[in-house]
């Protein structure tokens, strides 16, 4: 397997055959934050970024990523500092079981890079390639909006004051 840049670090992995990126990440590199949901592009759980675009790692061959930049959930936080999207997902409980969460987060990163003030329909469309069975998506939308506001430098309601006393 040729070299590629994984979460900002140059990596070289020797993988026999034509293994999809998902297995390269999970089995060869031990990065299990990227999840298997179906293996055939029908759920979105295995989303990673290749050269900045969200794609399905179950359908991209590891070898086809040679020379490319691959970003996974493991690279999203800056050390211990959560990305505003991660913080907002945690604050609003947009992650319930957490299985689809990495996929939504990575997809949302790209959305906010392209559009710092996405409307609700734009969020719905951008996130429509990942299935979630826990949340009903609404908390995910709210978290994306909250993170977008934080990233624009706006003030958001502190968590303690949301829904206080119900």
């Amino acid at each position: 397997m040729p070299k590629f840049t994984l979460n900002g670090e140059a990596r070289e992995v020797n993988v026999p055959g034509a293994n999809p990126l998902l297995w390269v990440l999970r089995e060869s590199l031990g990065l299990t934050g990227t999840k298997f949901g179906c293996g055939i592009g029908q759920c979105g759980a295995c989303t990673v970024l290749v050269d900045g675009d969200p794609v399905l790692s179950c359908l991209v061959l590891g070898r086809a990523c040679a020379g490319k930049r691959v970003d996974t959930i493991e690279g999203m936080a800056d050390g211990n500092g959560l990305h505003p999207l991660q913080q907002a997902f945690a604050d609003l409980s947009a992650a319930q079981c957490g299985y689809c969460t990495p996929a939504f987060l990575l997809t949302a990163v790209v959305l906010l890079k392209e559009n710092d003030r996405p409307s609700r329909p734009e969020i719905v469309a951008a996130l429509s390639g990942v299935l979630c069975r826990c949340t009903g998506y609404l908390k995910i939308y709210e978290a994306v909006e909250r993170a977008a506001a934080v990233m624009r430098g706006e003030k958001v309601t502190p968590l303690e004051e949301i829904l206080d006393g119900i």
Binding site: T34, A90, G98, Y99, G165
Partner: peptide, 25 residues
């Protein structure tokens, strides 16, 4: 009780660190 709190495992989940059964090796 009665106030919004971050779930105790939320940060593990948003960083992909929660270990699900298939993540065990």
């Amino acid at each position: 009780v009665g106030t919004s709190q971050v779930m105790v495992d939320a940060v593990s989940k948003v960083t992909g660190k929660t270990v699900f059964a298939d993540d065990l090796q």
